[in-house]
């Protein structure tokens, strides 16, 4: 945009979409904030009086809140760790010239196309079920006691399911990044005396830095709001062992019918998500420059 005139024209022309987006964002946000300041419980119909920050103090002082926050962080961190490390390893593997490469790649990508509810149901009923599940059957074969994943390690199980869905995403992005690495650089490193491990850490990993940043940022945004997998499998339990912030907000508003506290939780979640985002951008966003 070179001239004053074209800049003005550009602003004018993008104005409608900016306004639409603003409205799209601001109206729900405004309503959530508004509800969060009211005493608004669906079980007690009335005139919904304005109560200031009462809902916030209830929500924040609830011990479940701290558990939910910790669970949220564990969930995001666990999935990020598994998908990034696993994605790099898988990308390295399927970048090798192997027989049936095309089919292997499609197979690797496939889990990403399974919707979260379906994948969670499949995991819950076909794999992790302590009576009929595949894992229980394998344990039986080996004479072991079947392990009740969702009851004994609910959060880990959910991390596993989500990682399964998102591993292909990470793999795909990292694979394309890997393929864009100039092969002469690897050959130069080979001639310079770098073995496979040195080549990976000195040449490939720095080359992948930007792609890894993208994988982490995008996944963080999605994983802060994991919901379907929890609803379908554990309902946040046992107790609150697998309740994250999103699920807690849902539980407040739609299980306890307390719209006010639920909205307050929503606002808290928004603030937390932004803190995480700023923190992430600071930490790794500089990889995206230049």
């Amino acid at each position: 945009m070179a001239t004053q005139h074209s800049r003005a024209a550009a602003r004018f022309m993008i104005a409608p979409s900016v306004l639409l987006l603003l409205g799209w964002m601001l109206i729900p946000l405004g309503m959530t904030i508004y509800f969060s300041l009211l005493r608004y419980n669906l079980l007690m119909p009335g005139n919904n009086p304005f109560v200031g920050f009462e809902n916030y103090s209830y929500f924040l002082s609830d011990p479940t809140f701290l558990t939910a926050m910790l669970n949220t962080l564990l969930l995001v961190g666990g999935v990020l760790l598994i998908t990034t490390v696993g994605g790099i390893l898988l990308a390295l593997l399927i970048d090798q010239p192997i027989w049936g490469q095309g089919i292997v790649r499609i197979l690797v990508i496939a889990p990403f196309f399974v919707m979260p509810t379906v994948s969670a149901l499949v995991w819950k009923n076909m794999f992790m079920n302590p009576v009929n599940g595949l894992f229980a059957w394998v344990a039986d074969l080996m004479g072991l006691q079947p392990y009740d994943f969702l009851a004994s390690a609910p959060l880990l199980s959910i991390i596993g399911m989500v990682s399964w869905t998102w591993l292909p995403f990470a793999t795909l992005i990292l694979l394309t990044a890997l393929q864009s690495l100039d092969s002469e650089q690897l050959e130069a490193a080979e001639m310079d005396g770098a073995g496979p491990v040195s080549r990976f850490f000195h040449i490939m990993l720095p080359h992948l830095a930007r792609a890894i940043t993208v994988v982490i940022l995008i996944q963080t945004i999605f994983h802060l709001s994991i919901f379907a997998e929890i609803l379908v499998t554990t309902n946040g339990g046992p107790g609150v062992a697998s309740t994250n912030l999103t699920y807690l907000v849902y539980a407040e508003s739609l299980l306890r019918f307390d719209v006010g506290t639920g909205s307050a939780g929503g606002v808290v979640a928004i603030i937390l998500a932004n803190i995480v985002a700023i923190f992430l951008m600071r930490m790794i966003g500089k990889n995206l420059d230049a």
């Binding site: 100039d182 002469e184 650089q185 130069a188 490193a189 001639m191 770098a194």
Partner: peptide
């Protein structure tokens, strides 16, 4: 390659 004591300069320079 590393054991041959040869150094190569590539067309694309292949700098890191």
């Amino acid at each position: 390659p590393a054991k041959r004591r040869l150094a190569m300069v590539f067309q694309s320079y292949a700098l890191y």
